[in-house]
Amino acid sequence: MSRKIKVLMAKLGLDIHWRGAVAVSRMLRDAGMEVVYLGNQFPEEIINAAIQEDADVVGLSTLGGNHAVLGPKVVRLLREKGMGDVLVLMGGVIPRDDMPALKKAGIAEVFGPETQIQEIVDFIHANLKKASAAS
């Protein structure tokens, strides 16, 4: 049995818009990935789940304007817990001005509302950092 890419998908905090995150999850499943859907979560819980699921990718979805605070927090906590090699992606409505800061904080890529999901699939394949995922 070959290695599957494991993705942890979470809605950040109180943001209520679940449809996009679920549609992306289903399309990543169609691309052969195993997606754990976490629902609405705060950074601490996302980290715990990422550890227990040994996630290769953490997807954070937000349209609620909380990205600037919560996104970098997820990256920081992952690094603290020895999971710095996890690919952290964000999707949703995120102002362009905030993107440099997010990238600098370690968010690998930010996907806006008109992203084709194939772009996300391609990005994941091209950028998986975890050594175990490459085998």
Binding site: R29, E34, Y37
Partner: peptide, 13 residues
């Protein structure tokens, strides 16, 4: 696809 959508964890948060 061989992929999966795993949704049980949402109820165990």
């Amino acid at each position: 696809s061989g992929g999966a959508f795993l949704g049980d964890r949402i109820r165990m948060t």
